[in-house]
């Protein structure tokens, strides 16, 4: 029975559609994820182009215009406790906050995946030594760990970045290790080994493409956590120092105005919230788009 001979032209040769392209296709159809992606893109662009978009200098203070409410003429979003224009500072603050939100996750993604895939693929003693070391970090709550490392290293942008990276490595290692252990025992890896392929080829062609997706989805979910932790560090005086603008730090300095001018004081928090929730929803959408049905 040769069906293919009877329908030569009806079913044309399908162009090989890459996996990632099909994921993108499904993601584009997800309205919520697309809205979040658009929001994030807008926030990132505004932060990048803040010097050209912002109406004022972020450090220009005015004692006469302290704590103006939202909608004040010339200061659309009001002013802070030193009379600095809040919209300007939110735009500039986005730069540091986003770096603090994304930077540690990217670094931890690279280092954590490396360690986790190694542990998962090698198994045995290598796995045990890597995973038990990681478990030590797990013993501490993440906020406490970040504060402790930042405190030990001293305040500052770079140190906060380093401490947050260290905080995010263990969970990523765990996810990477568990996915790799799963994939490693699958028959296609066995089949590749049976055809004589070495470990390097097996990892590059058969393991990495199948584990990078789940790890990436998990990491995107961590961006919001990182943002909040970074804001927390700044709030405690362990991250960015004044007069630099950063959402967490702004939340800290504006808390004095929480009774007199609550709406203005809440604005940096609203930005953190918006970016976090967009990251989480985008990560959810990505996970759904990557879920290839069997």
């Amino acid at each position: 029975m040769n069906l293919t001979a009877t329908l030569p032209a009806v079913v044309p040769a399908r162009p090989a559609q890459g996996y990632w392209r099909s994921v993108l296709g499904r993601l584009v159809r997800d309205k919520v994820a697309m809205f979040c992606a658009f929001m994030l893109l807008a926030i990132v662009l505004i932060a990048i182009f803040a010097p050209w978009l912002a109406p004022y200098d972020p450090a220009a203070a005015s004692m006469l215009k302290r704590l103006q409410p939202i909608g004040t003429e010339g200061h659309l979003l009001g002013t802070d406790e030193l009379g600095r224009d809040l919209m300007t500072r939110l735009m500039y603050g986005g730069r540091l906050s986003l770096v603090m939100g994304i930077g540690p996750v990217v670094l931890a993604f690279v280092i954590g995946s490396l360690l986790g895939v190694t542990a998962g693929f090698a198994g045995g003693m290598v796995n045990t030594s890597i995973m038990r070391t990681v478990d030590v970090f797990y013993a501490f709550p993440s906020v406490l760990l970040a504060i402790a490392i930042s405190g030990a290293l001293g305040a500052g942008l770079v140190n906060a970045l380093v401490s947050l990276t260290i905080v995010f490595i263990p969970p990523i290692v765990r996810v990477a290790e568990s996915v790799t252990t799963q994939v490693r025992s699958l028959d296609y890896v066995e089949a590749a080994r049976a055809s004589g392929a070495g470990n390097a080829v097996i990892i590059r062609l058969h393991v990495l493409p199948n584990v990078v997706g789940p790890i990436f989805v998990y990491a995107t979910g961590l961006v919001s956590v990182s943002l909040i932790l970074a804001s927390g560090l700044s709030f405690l005086g362990l991250g960015v120092k004044p007069p630099l603008a950063e959402w967490g730090l702004m939340l800290n300095t504006l808390r004095a105005a929480i009774y007199s001018n609550p709406w203005v004081a809440a604005l940096p928090g609203l930005m953190i919230f918006t970016v976090s929730i967009c990251c989480n929803l985008l990560s959810d959408g990505l996970r759904q788009a990557m879920d290839v049905t069997r």
């Binding site: 090989a16 699958l186 028959d187 296609y188 062609l205 058969h206 493409p209 290839v292 069997r294």
Partner: peptide, 9 residues
């Protein structure tokens, strides 16, 4: 299914 890499044609 398990013996074919899902990311390879």
């Amino acid at each position: 299914f398990a013996s074919l890499n899902p990311r390879l044609t």
